[in-house]
Amino acid sequence: MARPLKSSEGALGHMLGFRLNNAEFDVWDKKVKSSGLNKAEYFRQAVIDNRSVIQQKVHVVQGHFIPTKIFSAASNNLNQLARALNTANKAGTVSNHFLEEILSTLQSIESTLRFK
């Protein structure tokens, strides 16, 4: 006889995977073995019971703290603007005055992000 199906709330329908280097794996493996749980149960309990402490990486520039995620997103957006402006300039669809204005603004933003 087949095992009865779990309810949709009890079914484990999402699989996660991650990689560890040898030193990280040794620490992980010791903790799992000492817990008496299997790896999946240990991970679920660590995350769901919130026994883990996650800290966001912080970018430090001359005493100023900028969360890396925000810094990365801002840099990405500026790069996209610069690329679009360069493409428009090459196509001749933007005036020199507008180009100089935008470049000045981008340089000002860059200077602000670098805390010069």
Score class of each variant (00 low, 15 high):
A2R: 15
R3A: 15
R3I: 15
K6W: 04
S7V: 00
S8Q: 13
E9G: 08
E9H: 11
G10N: 07
A11W: 11
G13Q: 15
H14C: 15
H14W: 07
M15Y: 13
L16R: 15
L16T: 05
L16S: 12
G17T: 03
F18R: 03
F18D: 02
F18L: 14
F25T: 12
D26W: 06
D26V: 00
D29K: 08
D29M: 00
D29V: 02
K30D: 03
K31H: 05
S34L: 01
S35G: 08
L37N: 07
K39G: 05
E41C: 04
F43R: 05
F43D: 07
R44H: 07
R44T: 02
V47P: 14
I48Y: 05
N50E: 14
V53T: 08
V53D: 11
V53I: 08
I54A: 11
I54Q: 15
V61N: 08
Q62Y: 13
G63N: 08
G63Y: 10
H64V: 09
H64Q: 11
F65S: 00
K69P: 09
I70P: 01
S72L: 06
S72T: 02
S72Y: 00
A73G: 01
A74W: 05
A74F: 05
S75C: 00
N77H: 14
L78G: 00
L81R: 00
A82V: 04
A82M: 07
R83L: 06
R83Q: 12
A84W: 05
A84H: 11
L85H: 02
N86D: 13
N86H: 12
T87N: 09
A91H: 01
G92E: 12
V94E: 01
N96D: 13
H97T: 14
F98H: 14
L99A: 10
L99T: 08
E101P: 12
L103M: 14
S104G: 02
T105A: 06
S108P: 05
I109A: 08
S111T: 09
T112F: 15
F115D: 14
K116Y: 12
